[in-house]
Amino acid sequence: MEQGTVKWFNAEKGFGFIERENGDDVFVHFSAIQGDGFKSLDEGQAVTFDVEEGQRGPQAANVQKA
């Protein structure tokens, strides 16, 4: 798993971006967030995640709040 920081996340649209430790950004969809209840992330929040190849390039999977 990688570690990163939430760059931004739009809860209304259900997606955002995580900044990886290497400085690259990776797309995150709310469906990739682990846990119960409303799935959202806060700007600046530390997270761990896997990276999978999506239809439009790399995207975060198995996102967990650190």
Rank of each mutant, 00 (worst) to 15 (best):
F38W: 15
G37Q: 06
E21P: 15
Q59L: 06
V26N: 00
I18R: 00
G35K: 06
A46G: 09
Q45L: 07
G16F: 01
S40K: 11
T48K: 09
N22V: 14
E12G: 12
V6L: 05
D25G: 05
N10T: 06
Q3L: 13
E19V: 14
P58C: 07
D42K: 15
E2G: 08
G4H: 01
R56K: 12
G14Q: 03
F17E: 03
A61D: 04
T5Q: 09
G16E: 00
N62M: 06
Q34G: 08
V51M: 09
G37K: 06
G37M: 06
Q64A: 10
F27D: 01
G37H: 07
F49A: 00
T48L: 12
Q64H: 12
R20A: 06
G44R: 07
V26C: 05
G4Y: 01
F17Y: 07
F27G: 01
L41Q: 02
R56G: 09
F30C: 07
A66G: 10
D25L: 14
F15P: 00
N10W: 12
V26T: 04
E2W: 14
A46D: 09
E43K: 15
Q64M: 11
D36E: 12
E53L: 13
M1R: 13
G44V: 02
A66V: 15
Q3N: 12
D36W: 08
F49K: 00
E43M: 14
G23A: 11
P58R: 12
A61Q: 11
E53G: 06
V28C: 06
F15G: 02
K39Q: 09
Q64N: 12
E12H: 14
N22M: 11
M1A: 14
Q45W: 11
Q55G: 09
I33E: 02
K65A: 12
F15R: 02
E19M: 15
S31F: 05
L41C: 03
T5V: 13
V28I: 07
E12D: 11
K39D: 05
G14P: 00
V51L: 11
A11P: 13
A60G: 04
G54I: 04
G37Y: 07
R20W: 10
G57Y: 05
R20N: 06
Q3M: 12
E53T: 12
H29A: 03
E21K: 15
K13C: 08
G44T: 04
V51W: 06
G54D: 06
E21V: 14
L41A: 03
K13I: 09
F49H: 01
K39G: 06
M1H: 13
R56W: 15
F27Q: 02
Q34P: 06
G35R: 04
G44D: 05
R20I: 07
V51D: 02
V63W: 00
G54L: 06
E2M: 13
E2Q: 13
S40Y: 14
K7C: 08
Q34E: 09
G57E: 03
Q55T: 14
E21T: 14
M1I: 12
T5N: 10
V28A: 03
N10L: 07
A61K: 14
G35Y: 07
H29W: 05
E2C: 10
F9W: 15
N10K: 09
A60Q: 00
D25N: 10
K39E: 06
Q34N: 10
D42A: 14
L41H: 02
F38H: 10
D42N: 13
S31C: 07
D36Q: 12
E2L: 14
L41F: 05
E43D: 10
G23S: 09
E19K: 15
K39T: 06
A60L: 02
I33V: 08
S31G: 06
E21Q: 13
D36Y: 10
F15I: 08
S40I: 10
K39F: 06
N22W: 11
E2D: 09
G54Q: 06
V26E: 00
F15M: 06
D50P: 00
K7G: 04
G14C: 03
I18M: 03
A60P: 01
E2S: 10
R56S: 09
A46N: 10
D24W: 10
D24Q: 13
F27P: 02
E43A: 15
V63I: 05
Q59T: 08
N22Y: 13
D25P: 08
H29K: 03
G37V: 05
N10Q: 05
Q45N: 07
F15E: 02
E12V: 13
K65M: 10
G44Q: 05
E53M: 15
A66M: 14
R20S: 07
F49G: 00
V63T: 03
F27K: 02
R56Q: 11
K39V: 08
E43L: 13
E19F: 14
N10F: 07
G4C: 02
A61H: 10
E43H: 15
Q3K: 15
E53A: 11
D25F: 11
G4S: 02
G57I: 04
S40H: 13
M1F: 11
Q59G: 04
K7P: 01
N22I: 12
H29E: 03
E53I: 15
S40R: 11
F49S: 00
L41V: 05
G44S: 05
E52N: 08
V26I: 13
T5W: 15
Q55N: 12
N62S: 05
N62R: 08
S40E: 07
R20H: 06
G44L: 04
K7H: 07
G35L: 08
R56V: 08
A46F: 11
G23N: 12
F30K: 09
N22P: 09
S40L: 07
E12Q: 14
V47H: 00
Q59V: 11
V28K: 00
A46M: 14
V28D: 01
F30A: 07
F49I: 02
F49V: 01
K65H: 09
T48Q: 08
F9L: 03
V51C: 06
G23L: 11
D36I: 10
G4K: 01
E12Y: 14
F49T: 01
D42S: 14
I18Y: 00
G35T: 10
N22H: 12
F17T: 03
E2I: 13
G37D: 06
V47A: 02
K7L: 06
E2N: 11
V51R: 04
N22F: 12
F27N: 02
W8R: 04
S40Q: 09
H29S: 04
T48A: 08
A61V: 15
E21D: 13
N62L: 05
F17A: 03
N10E: 05
A61Y: 10
G44C: 08
F38K: 08
F15T: 03
F49Q: 01
A32M: 06
V28W: 02
V47Y: 03
G54M: 07
Q64T: 11
Q34R: 09
A66D: 09
S40T: 15
T5F: 13
A11N: 11
D50H: 12
G57S: 06
V63Y: 00
Q3T: 12
Q45I: 10
G57T: 04
D50E: 13
E12S: 13
D42R: 15
D42L: 14
D25R: 09
E43P: 15
E2R: 07
F9M: 03
Q45E: 14
G57C: 05
V6N: 01
